[in-house]
């Protein structure tokens, strides 16, 4: 949603001020300002190459802003969880499902502390919540795409982060799994979690995400989903997506 003076710097809200992020001087996210309210559930939508994943990477701190800045309202990096796109994990690695879920305790146990039996119990409970309770001892390479995503959601549950950044969490996932995991997300939101997810499935966004941010390098709309996902905005996003330029001039907009 757009910045208003009341929400500036409020606790647990994430404020983007004139933020630009990108690669090799080419901004993929260009001069964006706005606020993710504490406890909000926001979908980031827009065309491929529109900067959605880039914005998430800036929020998790993998990319530095080219200009502008992000205010986290007191949220520490340890309180932010990030789920990248599916392809980025080595699924052939010889670990069990429970091992992966226990990683969610990393902010508490770090590299060296022991895992307590309560934590094991909590991990098993998280697996039950995502419908994977019977799979704790299975090797991860034996899981289907949907089952794997359920395991990663169990890890998110265990991590108890204040902010979730999800990059296309439901890509290549069937309806039943999407429905179950969406339910898990809503439950986490009810417990006060701020959730920001890159999404492509617009009907799903309309059904479940109260807030939306439409991005095609430029900010096209940010606010309630019904207002943002209007025909006019969608047409503008499509039109902008056709105009990526390789040899752009230096940007003169004030940072």
């Amino acid at each position: 949603m757009p910045i208003d003076s009341d929400s500036m710097g409020a606790a647990m809200t994430i404020t983007l001020s004139n933020l630009s992020v990108g690669y090799d001087r080419h901004p993929a996210v260009h001069h964006i300002s706005g606020v993710f309210a504490a406890g909000s559930l926001t979908a980031i939508v827009g065309p491929n190459g529109g900067g959605k994943s880039t914005l998430l990477k800036a929020l998790i701190g993998f990319l530095r802003p080219m200009s502008g800045h992000i205010d986290f309202g007191g949220i520490t990096p340890q309180q932010i969880a990030y789920l990248p796109q599916q392809s980025e994990v080595d699924r052939s690695f010889p670990l069990s499902v429970l091992d992966v879920v226990l990683l969610g305790f990393w902010p508490k146990i770090g590299a060296f502390s022991a895992v307590s039996s309560e934590q094991r119990g909590a991990a098993q409970e998280a697996l039950e919540k995502t419908g994977m309770g019977a799979f704790a001892e299975r090797p991860i390479e034996a899981l289907s795409t949907g089952q794997w995503q359920r395991v990663l959601f169990a890890r998110l549950l265990v991590q108890k982060a204040r902010v979730l950044l999800l990059d296309e969490p439901f890509a290549a996932i069937d309806n039943r799994t999407t429905h179950d995991l969406m339910h898990v997300l809503q439950h986490m939101q009810e417990e006060g979690c701020t959730i920001i997810a890159v999404m492509h499935d617009l009907p799903l966004v309309r059904e479940h995400f109260p807030q939306s941010l439409m991005l095609a390098r430029e900010l096209i709309g940010w606010g309630s989903t019904a207002e943002v996902l209007c025909d006019e905005n969608l047409a503008r996003a499509t039109q902008l997506a056709g105009n990526w330029v390789e040899h752009a001039a230096e940007c003169k907009k004030v940072a």
């Binding site: 998790i60 340890q78 990248p84 994990v89 080595d90 690695f93 990683l103 902010p107």
Partner: peptide, 10 residues
């Protein structure tokens, strides 16, 4: 080795 993105995120 298994999930460098997770390692980086935490």
């Amino acid at each position: 080795s298994f999930d460098p993105h997770f390692m980086r995120a935490v």
